[in-house]
Design a protein around this nucleic acid. Structure first.
Lengths: 233, 233
DNA sequence: TCAAAAGTGTTGTCCGTACACCCATGA
DNA sequence: TCATGGGTGTACGGACAACACTTTTGA
């Protein structure tokens, strides 16, 4: 039988969370400044080692809660990263990390101070500072995955408030893909999918015609998927 | 500093490979029968623990090579699986595994006997025996992912010989999705994508009109992707 | 000459695109 | 009354589904 305690196998398995939110139509990621060594005073992704008594999904939820104080946001595993030289010069030696992507509604909470964090801040994804280890790359890969995934799954709604206007939705796609859509065509396309519920409510206080609010119809979406009708933007 | 050698953290990190191939138009998965305990004489996915001196992708390639004798096939990480009770009653205790999906051309090699394997066999994906741990589930998740991915990425070609007919390609999609396509429409659709090179060669020895052979034009595909033109079946 | 699969042609419908246009609201 | 975005209408073109049809091959 193999001896996993020998030096021939890996000891360090961590989880890192790329927590994404929207602020003024721009995509932002949550980072924290480390209070203690290693890498004291440097910015990093919220993360931690996987404990023996928690599943990897649980670990990611624990970390999200520690840093935001809230639970029940959209969270999904991206993938594991474990090149042979990853973190090789850290005090813990070579480490494999499992990256989770979280999509949150920033309005729903105030930032907490996580364990070991002196400061926790939202950064525009186009202006991310140098992070520890390969964390910059982990963010990049997560953004790449988001761009792909949002085309075929309605996960964009996770970033918006429960009630939103069609313009907000359009701006979300435009921000993530860095494109511009024709408004009439965007409206027709998304409405034609039959996955939005038009509310009897309008957003007011804006100096133009008050836009109608909509919400995502998850039940309807699931029904369509069952029937084999796919979402596609 | 955290003590990763304590009992509070995970020791066992493995890689499991779901190796898929085509046989007579049907999808098959490579399994082996274990020679030694634990789970002697039971069927399992090719896999093994990640060594300290190899990356996780390297580990998956090592395993593929051990079981097929060949390298350089399409291989891609699916994701990590690590519920808190996964393999909890194995001799190694709780284990996290990273699953890789390999798409291979079965004609290109003869099956080897991997380390610890008394028998190695292709199984039709609809007739998979009971496997150890959660390996049945790992296969299911891989197939689900393949079905999704094959719609938006031209990975199906990895399962076919380098030179193939349009009918072979059509049957591949029909097998994976369990659907039927209209032949003329399928031809036009795939040819219209401009990612196939028509060869000056025909497949003969068949008792009907000899079909033209094609090959996948990877350079062209990459060019189209750069331009933002997406593959979609 | 027949079965089987290769391969072409045609037609109607639906959907995306482009763009012109009117509507409500606060300043 | 004007700027701003909300929201509708229309016309063109391309892609896809359905299905009829011809061609080539081995048995």
């Amino acid at each position: 039988m193999i001896d996993l305690n020998s030096e021939n196998f890996i000891k360090a398995l961590s989880v890192d969370c790329v927590i994404l939110g929207l602020e003024k139509g721009e995509l932002e990621v949550l980072l924290y400044k480390r209070l203690s060594s290693p890498f004291k005073d440097q910015w990093a992704l919220p993360g931690g080692f996987v404990r023996y008594n928690e599943g990897i999904d649980d670990a990611s939820k624990r970390i999200l809660k520690d840093f935001t104080g809230v639970e029940n946001f959209y969270m999904e595993q991206l993938q594991a990263f474990g090149e042979v030289d990853r973190c090789i010069d850290s005090p813990y030696g070579r480490a494999v990390t499992i990256v989770y992507k979280a999509l949150v509604q920033t309005k729903k909470f105030k930032i907490h101070l996580g364990p070991d964090s002196g400061e926790t801040k939202w950064f525009n994804v186009t202006k991310i500072p140098d992070l520890i280890y390969d964390h910059n790359r982990l963010v990049e890969e997560t953004l790449k995955s988001l761009k792909k995934k949002i085309k075929y799954e309605p996960i964009g709604f996770e970033l918006l408030p429960a009630k939103f206007t069609l313009s907000q939705l359009q701006k979300l796609y435009e921000a993530i893909w860095n494109v511009k859509f024709d408004k009439p065509n965007f409206r027709r396309k998304i409405l034609h999918m039959n996955i939005l519920i038009k509310l009897d409510e309008k957003k007011n206080g804006v100096n133009h015609k008050n836009p109608t609010l909509y919400k995502f119809d998850k039940a309807r979406y699931n029904l369509l998927i069952e029937k084999g009708i796919l979402f596609e933007m």
